[in-house]
Write a protein that binds this DNA or RNA. Structure first.
Length: 276
DNA sequence: AAGTGTCACAACCGCATGTGC
DNA sequence: GGCACATGCGGTTGTGACACT
């Protein structure tokens, strides 16, 4: 498209950031806030590309970052989310407070991949490595969960899928339900469906007349039986489906989906800060 | 102690997407 | 609708630290 380069490479530093550069960037963002990354380097007196500044801030300097080792719970959460979303690191990171997509991506590549392999699972498909698959495995995103989640995150997508599919995920739990690293190899993979995830998806029936620009909160349509209003939708419409998977919540946590009158949709609304 | 291999992670790069004109 | 630009994302690379021989 003939786009101009994002920065003048001849006059920008590359490589590791110095303490002074970090201080300048932090000071500038504290004073002026994030944004305008392209002009930020010049304004902050940095000989860096705007992209580089953004990355440095997001991945390293942001004050809300949780540094340090990943916990076992985070490991499992990442594995579950990856099974659902694939390599959508930003979406995965959105569910892990204080973690960045880059951090999770690195952690996946260096630790979790190996962990899954030791469990006898394919890191990409989350299926047993020796499983015979007559047809190529479906993308891990299932009914385009990633796209749906992405759309939900971006508060848009008035276009909704015609088909609502339960986002059941082959968990192969039997293969890695223990920590001894043994899989159930040899046996035909038992399809377990993990209902312990909450995807913040927004899906509705084809007839749903979406009102654009909802509040910046997340919505979920789910099939959780605890949803209120599941039985109130008109029988003339296909049943709305609640897909609340209690991701990161105790399984006993009731979902808070509510039927929206005349819209045949369940919404699960949660403050953003809860997701961070 | 030196050389080599491996790991972990920060940073870069190219492309995709969103937005305003 | 098309273009240019800004930003975001995911894959890849570079490099320092550490382990091993």
């Amino acid at each position: 498209m003939g786009r101009s380069p994002c920065c003048e490479k001849a006059h920008t530093n590359k490589g590791a950031w110095t303490k002074e550069e970090d201080q300048r960037l932090i000071a500038y963002i504290q004073a002026h806030g994030e944004g305008c990354w392209r002009s930020l380097p010049k304004a902050a007196g940095l000989l860096r590309c705007g992209k580089s500044c953004r990355l440095r801030w997001i991945n390293y300097l942001r004050p809300d970052l949780k540094r340090g080792n990943f916990t076992e719970e985070e490991d499992e959460l990442i594995i579950k989310l990856h099974g659902l979303l694939g390599n959508k690191w930003s979406l995965i990171a959105a569910r892990l407070p204080g973690r960045t997509d880059n951090e999770i991506k690195n952690y996946w590549n260096t630790h979790i991949k190996r962990k899954l392999l030791s469990r006898g699972l394919d890191p990409q498909t989350h299926r047993p490595l020796n499983a015979v698959s007559p047809s190529p495995p479906p993308p891990p995103s299932l009914f385009s969960a990633a796209a749906a989640a992405a759309a939900a995150q971006k508060h848009e997508s008035p276009i909704v899928p015609d088909v609502i599919v339960a986002a059941a995920v082959p968990k192969a739990e039997a293969a890695y339900s223990t920590d001894d690293g043994h899989s159930s190899g040899g046996e035909a993979p038992t399809q377990h469906y993990d209902l312990d995830l909450n995807l913040d998806l927004s899906i509705s029936l084809p007839s749903y007349n979406y009102s654009p620009r909802r509040s910046p909160q997340l919505e979920t349509v789910s099939n959780n039986s605890t949803c209120t209003g599941a039985g109130t939708a008109s029988a003339a419409y296909a049943q709305s489906v609640c897909l609340c998977y209690h991701l990161g919540f105790q399984s006993g946590d009731a979902c808070t989906c509510q039927a929206i009158p005349n819209q045949h949709i369940f919404r699960y609304i949660r403050p953003l800060e809860d997701a961070q």
